[in-house]
Design a protein around this nucleic acid. Structure first.
Length: 469
RNA sequence: GCCCCGUUCGUCCAGCGGCCUAGGACGCUGGCCUUUCACGCCAGUAACACGGGUUCAAAUCCCGUACGGGGUACCA
């Protein structure tokens, strides 16, 4: 049943940036190709001149590369293949399966208003023998009887009655072909065996199949329509309503391995229920037949959790490399920041991180001269409260004293601070932490503190102590 | 309106007629660990939309209803 070497395509329309829904479509094509050692083709559907902007192309290819979804062929640009589509349209006209039309939207609406026709275009120009020219569209003559059956790998057989399909436009008034023709022509030309895409395109499929058959292309490819990704409002993920640019996730510090792992889990699940695993492993398990039919809610919390798992699984060295790059990309490069120092802290950072954006507040106090100002009102209150415990001044005095002369390493610092606490029967770590880091919570204190200059640590402690009077 | 698709815990996924007193993951709650916060571990929470069939047996098959989504462009 399964062809030896399937050929699939990801065919986005360029529109500014790649969003997660498109990325998921690309991924499922990629997985399918990998699973059956097929060919994954990238095709840019820029038949509409408004979309054919060079700057949009990179917005597609760049994120795909970031995700590691490498394509085997392409990118092909439909804007460069117009002659093929025009030839196909002419073929249809010759076969009397398409005709010229000069109706405007207003004309059509007016007629339908009068006649009460509800089927869209009424076929008014079918026999009017309009001459081609500027502003004249070409419409495909849909059959009045019969039905198109879409055999969908995910949904089963779906029937569309031909008489419910209007004579749709296949060439615009400006002479450019619409995507339906381009789709049929290219899928045939590129020997596409499986068309895997979002469910929003299911309704256009019978039109493409009709064109396919009219063009004499033989057996159409196997279709598979993926459930849509929806947002909190339960609506299809869209650029207008949701923040879904892949690049935004990257900026937040989602890593591609996690992103792709999470995306693979939307609408599909491995039979053994093991969710977090390398994409190659997922590919080897992937079956289109097992893809869900219902829309999937894009859950950022779970994405973050998975990202955290990936970050924790990294070696400290790899983690540091990622972190350093991320810091650089986001423009945070304090003088004292070094990969070496970061490597020491990496394991404890990894434990406390879900997205790379969580990282900076964990270590900024170590690498910056001045401790960051806390801006959160609630935190400020909690900090004030913690510092107003009666033993705090004594604790700080003791710690300052001890830290002046001890060895400046993790163990000695710990010893000074815990002894101060023990002798006063008080929690000594919290006030010291607040004094030195500016925060109530964070990394285990002693290791990063040893990286900080003794003089800096002391001056922060003295400063905090003086504010308590 | 019309056409198409769908409906298992709050969310994602497992379940393809008996293994289901429905399983896993995220989230949430509680506990253990811990002189911060986490991680880790343990426990708990919570679902087959409804109504009819079919069958010895239905979350699983069929029909209807309700609800949700998508499409209905000279966008893709």
């Amino acid at each position: 049943m399964t062809p030896q070497s399937p050929r699939v395509r990801f065919a986005p329309a360029p529109s500014g940036y790649l969003h997660v829904g498109s990325a998921r479509s690309a991924l499922f094509n990629w997985l399918f190709a990998k699973r059956f050692e097929g060919t994954f083709i990238l095709r840019i559907e820029d038949t509409n001149a408004d979309l054919a902007k060079p700057e949009f192309y990179e917005a597609i290819t760049e994120p795909l590369e970031w995700l590691g979804l490498e394509w085997d062929e392409g990118p092909y640009y439909q804007s460069q293949r117009t002659e093929k589509y025009i030839a196909a349209i002419e073929d249809l006209i010759d076969k009397k399966l398409a005709y010229c039309c000069n109706c405007t939207r207003e004309n059509i609406d007016a007629r339908n208003n009068e006649t009460g026709y509800r089927g869209g275009y009424d076929g008014y120009c079918r026999d009017r023998q309009i001459n081609d020219g500027p502003g004249v569209t070409i419409r495909f003559m849909t059959p009045n009887v019969g039905a198109v059956e879409v055999d969908d790998l995910i949904r089963g057989k779906v029937q569309f009655k031909n008489n419910e399909l209007e004579d749709f436009v296949i060439r615009r008034g400006n002479g450019t072909p619409v995507f339906l023709v381009a789709n049929a022509v290219d899928d045939a030309d590129m020997s596409i065996t499986h068309v895997i895409r979002g469910e929003d395109l299911l309704n256009t499929t019978p039109k493409v199949i009709l064109l396919w058959e009219a063009l004499g292309y033989g057996k159409p490819p196997q279709y598979a329509h993926l459930p849509l990704l929806i947002g909190e409002d339960r609506k299809k993920l869209s650029k207008r309503r949701h923040s879904v640019a892949l690049s935004d996730f990257r900026t937040d510090g989602i890593i591609p391995e996690a992103m792709i792992n999470y995306l693979a889990l939307l609408g599909w699940g491995p039979p053994d229920e093991k969710e977090i695993r390398p994409i190659e492993e997922i590919a080897s398990l992937f079956e289109l037949e097992n893809v869900n039919k219902s829309p999937a809610f894009f859950d950022i919390k779970k994405l973050h959790h998975i990202n955290g798992e990936y970050l924790r699984a990294l070696s400290p060295e790899d983690f540091v490399m990622l972190a350093m790059n991320y810091f650089k990309d986001t423009g945070w490069q304090p003088n004292n920041l070094t990969a070496q120092a970061l490597t020491v802290l990496a394991p404890s950072m990894q434990e406390r991180t879900e997205i790379l954006n969580d990282l900076k507040p964990l270590v900024d106090w170590v690498f910056e001269e001045i401790i960051p100002e806390e801006t959160n009102e609630k935190e400020i209150k909690k900090i004030a409260k913690a510092m107003h415990v009666s033993e705090v001044p004594m604790v700080l005095d003791l710690v300052i004293e001890g830290l002046r002369n001890c060895q400046w390493d993790e163990e000695s610092i710990e010893q000074v601070i815990s002894e101060a606490g023990e002798s006063l029967q008080a929690k000594s770590q919290v006030p010291v932490r607040i004094a030195v880091t500016g925060r109530r919570i964070g990394l285990p204190l002693y290791k990063p503190m040893a990286i900080l200059d003794r003089s800096l640590a002391l001056s922060r402690l003295v400063d905090a102590r003086s504010k308590l009077a």
